[in-house]
Design a protein around this nucleic acid. Structure first.
Length: 764
DNA sequence: GTAGGGTTAG
């Protein structure tokens, strides 16, 4: 880092004719502008001028300067100013600093400062509370509200109430939010309609908070009711309503609202614009995105940094890298968001080097910048670089990992199946208290479950005191993937009992749980409940699950009938599910039909071709089998090479079929031969695919695991494809002769091998 | 007359 002179060198003085007050005002305005634009060099230059003209000791300007530094994210400058220059700070000074800490997510620093303050006002309390809210510590925010009451040193104002109400909303505690509204309105609210009748005189802060409370929890009728009853519909209320609709994927409604807003207010609001532009990303609606862009240009709103920033992301997410670059290049002012967006832009196209260039080129970085770079590494399989990023982050003074950091890291561990690494990182979350964060805990549940530790996943789930939809879905999915259909159903039912509303994903999870465990009746009844009770139309994934469920249980005709009833065109997954069911139940006629559809779909997946070739081969139709292989070659579809991997001593070892690259290859081969001899003595005879590889990758991994994992530990192995019948039989027998436990994650589910049998009950 | 709404980046 380049050392900056302190205080910074002065730049030319302001015109001499200006009066003292005018000069002060001019400085304050200029500082505010630097803060708003994130222009750190400008703020430093102004600091130099303040020193030069002898105004640097005026506490009013010091506070403004402090605010400017913090708005630029320049924590070192701010701290140096506070410690070295501000000799007589007032309440506002501390509030500014408090706000800075809160905005940077440094809650422990904020708490320390707050506790040490000799005088506090309502703003101090509000700032701390909103800091908790912004860091998603909603319970702590409400706690602060209570402490404020109890301390009696200041009375809550509209801002206090609006923040407390939003915290209630985030926790799903609408009843409490309405109680708070009653406190501010001085009436007892009985129900929502009474609240709405009493709204016209409501404070605009509270009004927008109420709209937000409803809109962000998907209660659109109530949100619009409140909104419509407002005399003064301010920009904020419009924006939260639009944003709420977008959050629930109601794109058309939000566009309509946006147009109404334009018509009614006769102006364009930069925040509303940015919100809608970002909505185009999730819809990949480049067409509307372009229209909005030209609207920005015509109205001059493209000068607003938030608007340009949202345009950059919109273009990048819609795959238009060039336009994203152009927007960035032509911006008059860029802030930390603009630069961080560019990291993501290049990460999305897989150009990690370029992303890193942007990262290294940034003079101030915040936790989001770091997370963007971390995510770039993790998403592109560069876990080691990612881990290095995390360690650098821990030693960096001005940045602290936050919940996204950990969610990103746990996602990486989950994909890798890296158990030990995951445990180490959990240690980090416990240290900073983030293990209590619902999203972090959700990521841990998924990681444990994907690493084969379903019991530990359940412990985290039980320990979580605020469960959200993702928590429920993660736990149901976990059980499903482990073939524990009964438990998946139990969690699903518990979720309903506690009044949580299942979504599309919840049903995918529970239905796939039923299909992995062969729970036909249960699956059927959930499939019916989905539309009837929760008004969710079954999508492709649900149909795939049902075809899989019916097919594997042997109800092939019913499965085929369901496909015929589908309101959308069946995809390769659906026909693939039918095909593998036909393979299990030996219905070659239906298999041919499924394969015909599959091959017409031109899916690049080699699995279905291999399966059909095998069905023909097993039926003695070697010509037809060869025909399918030829078709596959002609279409340029390559067989997906199978590989397995496992973590031993914090290192990930990868095995391919008949792999010779592992340093211990000879020992592994010897071990495997020894195992095969032992199980042959039990009567094992190789049943399948004499033509395929001699040793599938999971067999090598099993041998290596036995050599290198302490014998009291289960052996965890990951595999990219489905496990084959022969390997399945072999590992069952190996678990019997060695007395060891194997947990194998294949492309679709888990197999726990123990004492000669598998948790899937040979049903997979 | 210094802080505090919503919004864009992970």
């Amino acid at each position: 880092m380049v050392a900056t002179p302190w205080p910074p060198p002065p730049s030319p003085p302001l015109p001499a004719a200006a009066s003292h007050m005018a000069v002060t005002q001019a400085f304050a305005d200029a500082l505010r502008s630097c803060g708003a634009r994130g222009a750190l060099s400008g703020a430093r230059a102004l600091h130099g001028r303040l020193v030069a003209v002898g105004l640097a000791s005026a506490v009013f300007l010091q506070n403004t300067l402090l605010h400017a530094y913090l708005s630029c994210g320049a924590l070192p400058d701010a701290r140096r100013l506070l410690q070295a220059d501000i000799t007589s700070p007032n309440v506002i000074t501390h509030n500014v600093m408090l706000n800075g800490y809160a905005k940077l997510g440094r809650l422990s620093d904020a708490e320390e400062l707050f506790d040490g303050m000799s005088a506090r006002d309502v703003a101090s309390w509000n700032t701390l509370m909103s800091g908790y809210f912004q860091s998603r510590q909603h319970l702590a925010a409400l706690q602060t509200f209570v402490s404020m009451h109890r301390s009696g040193d200041s009375s809550p104002n509209a801002f206090t109430f609006s923040c407390a109400m939003k915290s209630c909303g985030a926790l799903g505690w609408h009843g409490l939010a309405l109680q708070l509204l009653g406190m501010v309105q001085k009436f007892d609210s009985q129900d929502d309609s009474e609240v709405i009748r009493n709204l016209p005189r409501i404070d605009p802060y509270v009004a927008s908070a109420l709209v937000e409370l409803y809109a962000k929890s998907g209660c659109f009728k109530e949100a619009k009711g409140v909104f419509n009853s407002l005399r003064d519909r301010n920009n904020v209320a419009w924006t939260v309503l639009i944003s709420g609709f977008l959050q629930y994927g109601c794109f058309t409604e939000s566009v309509e609202l946006f147009n109404q807003m334009r018509a009614e207010l006769m102006t364009l609001d930069q925040f509303a614009l940015a919100t809608l532009i970002s909505g185009c990303c999730s819809r990949m609606d480049l067409c509307l995105g372009r229209q909005l862009h030209s609207l920005c240009q015509k109205s001059g709103q493209n000068q607003a940094v938030v608007v340009s920033n949202s345009l950059i992301s919109m273009y990048a997410k819609c795959g238009n890298l060039q336009s994203a670059e152009i927007v960035f290049r032509f911006m008059n002012e860029r802030d930390i968001v603009s630069w961080t967006s560019m990291i993501t832009v290049y990460s999305q196209v897989g150009n990690i080097t370029k992303a890193r260039e942007f990262f290294d080129g940034m003079s101030t970085k915040n936790v989001i910048t770091w997370n963007a770079m971390l995510g770039a590494y993790i998403q592109h399989g560069a876990e080691e670089d990612g881990l290095k990023m995390y360690n650098d982050m821990l030693s960096e003074k001005d940045v602290k990992p936050d919940w996204v950091t950990y969610v990103t890291l746990f996602k990486g561990c989950a994909d890798l199946g890296a158990n030990k690494l995951g445990d180490q990182i959990i240690g980090g979350t416990v240290k900073v208290g983030l293990i209590l964060d619902t999203s972090v805990a959700n990521a841990v549940i998924t990681m444990y479950s994907k690493c084969g530790r379903i019991l530990e996943a359940r412990k985290v789930f039980d320990f979580l005191n605020v469960k959200d939809l993702v928590s429920w879905n993660a736990m149901i999915t976990g059980y499903s993937q482990h073939g524990m259909g009964k438990q998946a159903i139990e969690i699903f039912d518990d979720m309903l009992k506690r009044g949580a509303k299942p979504d599309y994903i919840s049903y995918v999870a529970v239905l796939s749980g039923c299909s992995h465990s062969g729970l036909v009746q249960e699956g059927k009844s959930y499939f019916d409940m989905m539309k009837r009770v929760h008004n969710i139309s079954p999508g492709l994934e649900h149909f795939s699950c049902m075809v899989d469920l019916l097919g594997r249980a042997g109800h092939l005709t019913e499965a085929k009938d369901l496909i015929d009833e589908m309101p959308m065109k069946p995809t390769a997954e659906v026909w693939g599910a039918l095909l593998s069911a036909c393979k299990i139940h030996g219905n070659n006629e239906l298999a041919e039909l499924a394969a015909k559809h599959l091959f017409e779909l031109d899916s690049p997946d080699s699995g279905s071709y291999m399966l059909m070739a095998k069905i023909y081969a097993d039926a003695g139709k070697s010509d037809d089998s060869a025909q399918v292989r030829k078709l596959m070659r002609d279409k340029g579809i390559k067989k997906n090479p199978g590989y397995s991997w496992m973590e031993v001593d914090n290192k990930v070892h990868v095995f391919k079929a008949d792999d010779v690259s592992h340093p211990q290859v000879i020992a592994i081969r010897n071990k495997l031969d020894e195992l095969m001899e032992k199980i042959a003595a039990l009567g094992y005879v190789r049943t399948e695919s004499p033509r395929s590889e001699i040793h599938h990758s999971e067999k090598l991994a099993v041998a290596f695991g036995l050599m290198s994992v302490p014998d009291w530990m289960p052996i965890h192995i990951m595999k990219n494809l489905r496990i084959c019948g022969d390997c399945h039989t072999v590992i069952k027998l190996v678990s019997s002769v060695t007395g060891r436990e194997f947990v194998i994650r294949d492309a679709v589910r888990f197999h726990h091998f123990n004492g000669g049998s598998c948790s899937c009950g040979d049903y997979w």
